[in-house]
């Protein structure tokens, strides 16, 4: 049997939405709580704390990740993006947000940040997603308001918008 181990704080250097942080975190602090508490990024919502609902999805090193199932202590050197990184400081919505707005892809907005971040990951690797691609990527994100139809539509529309934008830049 081991000696009693003191849960010492862990130093992490983590970049969140382009801001570098040098933090001492308790080992048990979940990424969701680090974001919402210490970093005051309350756009990431917590729905079940069991990894079932997907509301707390953020990007960790580009991968859609349930922030309720990751300890902040694990993320030394990681880059995290949350919903707060999407819109411009001038209020310009990101094309994915704009697509949700135009297609009524949200009602209460609670699951929305998780949907948006999951969509971000999908649209990084798929330029013109079909509805089935959206279901594959976001099928683990629960929404109780919309019935999903407009979320699928929004993500497909965002794919088209981003493709146009990329082509314009090319």
């Amino acid at each position: 049997m081991s000696e009693v181990v003191t849960p010492e704080k862990v130093r992490i250097r983590i970049t969140v939405n382009d801001t570098a942080h040098d933090l001492l975190v308790e080992p048990r602090t979940l990424l969701a709580d680090l974001l919402r508490g210490e970093l005051e990024l309350t756009g990431t919502h917590v729905g079940c704390e069991q990894g079932v609902c997907g509301a707390c999805t953020v990007l960790v090193d580009g991968a859609a990740t349930r922030s309720c199932l990751v300890f902040a202590a694990q993320l030394d050197g990681a880059t995290v993006r949350t919903v707060e990184s999407l819109a411009g400081a001038d209020g310009t919505l990101h094309p994915i947000q704009q697509a949700f707005h135009e297609n009524h892809g949200l009602q209460c907005g609670f699951c929305t940040p998780g949907m948006l971040m999951g969509a971000c990951e999908l649209l990084e690797r798929t330029t013109a997603p079909e509805p089935d691609d959206v279901r594959e990527a976001l099928g683990g994100n629960l929404c109780r308001c919309t019935g999903y139809q407009n979320i699928v539509k929004s993500v497909c529309a965002a794919g088209a918008a981003l493709a146009t934008e990329r082509n314009g830049q090319a």
Binding site: L41, G43, V83, E84, L86, A87, G91, L93, C108, G109
Partner: peptide, 11 residues
Amino acid sequence: DPKLLAGRATY
């Protein structure tokens, strides 16, 4: 929508 989409609504 905008405040909800931006993660800026206060729940």
